[in-house]
């Protein structure tokens, strides 16, 4: 196999191979001159930290999870053996999709040393429309937007809630004219559901650490936020178009000790939750996981 994991940056094909210890900030500085970006904005984190922290970010509504933006990985297993997985191209059905598998389960099997990233054209500008309102209004407004023809033109749609306020942030991008059209369209939804909307410059999101992450039905994201915040306080962040959330409770101990109740709540929303501190035992195919780990040791 041709070694495709030497470090490179190719603005024409919009991909690069980087060490996973590299800071997102450093990546950004390399690409900005070519109007490209890697759609994960946790600038002070390394790529590996982003992979371990959360698969989703502001732009995931448009560009998917981090695994959707990694084309290949140079993976080192626990014996120090290195595997070249993936390619420098955006589509690949050659063998099993170990790129995604390792991106999502790095520590279990070894470490990703290098990754080939898919880069995206950076719009001329970003802008955000912020909705500050009640739980019900946030839900109704988001439901309307997500089912509208405008949904696929948005960059991000996040919910951030705490005991003080519930906030929905819609991120859009484009040239001035595109931004004007998108802003006008989103603001016009307030005629159907009277909510308070404000336009703001793009802000690099809330980068607080979160204790738990999970997934659920699209329509249940804000409902879960309301439940968790009322019960355990803290901060909840929902990626509304992806059906994914992050949560950092205020009453951590009580939250952790309520595992059964929370898991059952999530199940009723067809979702699941992962606690960072409680290394949740794998429910699916744990025997196969062990078998594969064992086989990789041989």
């Amino acid at each position: 196999m041709k070694h495709i994991f030497e470090l490179y940056y190719d603005p024409i094909d919009m991909s690069c191979c980087v060490d996973t210890q590299e800071l997102i900030r450093t990546l950004e500085s390399k690409m900005s001159k070519d109007n490209l970006f890697f759609p994960f904005y946790q600038k002070n984190k390394t790529l590996r930290e982003v992979m371990q922290y959360c698969n989703y970010d502001t732009f995931s509504y448009r560009f998917g999870s981090i695994a959707d933006n990694i084309l290949g990985v140079l993976f080192e297993d626990k014996n120090g053996l290195q595997y070249q997985i993936g390619a420098r191209v955006v589509k690949n059905v050659t063998g099993f999709d170990f790129t995604r598998f390792f991106c999502q389960n790095e520590n279990e099997f070894g470490v990703i040393k290098r990754a080939i990233l898919r880069l995206r054209p950076k719009p001329e500008a970003f802008q955000q429309i912020v909705l500050l309102d009640s739980k019900d209004n946030c839900e109704k407004f988001c439901d309307l937007i997500l089912h509208s023809v405008w949904a696929t033109s948005l960059m991000g749609m996040e919910f951030i809630g705490n005991k003080k306020e519930y906030k929905v942030i819609i991120t859009i991008g484009g040239n001035n004219q595109e931004i004007e059209i998108l802003t006008k369209a989103i603001l016009s939804f307030s005629a159907k559901i009277p909510v308070r909307l404000a336009v703001q410059n793009f802000e690099d999101g809330n980068k607080a650490e979160y204790l738990a992450s999970g997934n659920l039905l699209l329509s249940k994201n804000i409902e879960l936020a309301d439940y968790l915040i009322k019960q355990y306080g803290g901060v909840y962040k929902g990626f509304l178009g992806n059906g994914v959330f992050l949560y950092n409770p205020q009453e951590t101990d009580r939250f952790i000790s309520s595992e059964t109740e929370i898991v059952s709540k999530l199940q009723s929303y067809k979702g699941s939750i992962y606690w960072k501190q409680q290394k949740k035992q794998c429910e699916n195919l744990s025997d196969i996981r062990k078998q594969l780990l064992l086989a990789m040791k041989d």
């Binding site: 598998f101 389960n105 992450s213 997934n215 059906g243 979702g271 794998c282 195919l285 996981r289």
Partner: peptide
């Protein structure tokens, strides 16, 4: 509602696709 892959909950779904 999808699935969360963290810790030792492996992304077997992606392995099956393709």
């Amino acid at each position: 509602g999808g699935e969360t892959y963290r810790g030792n909950n492996c992304d077997w779904k992606s392995i099956f696709i393709g």
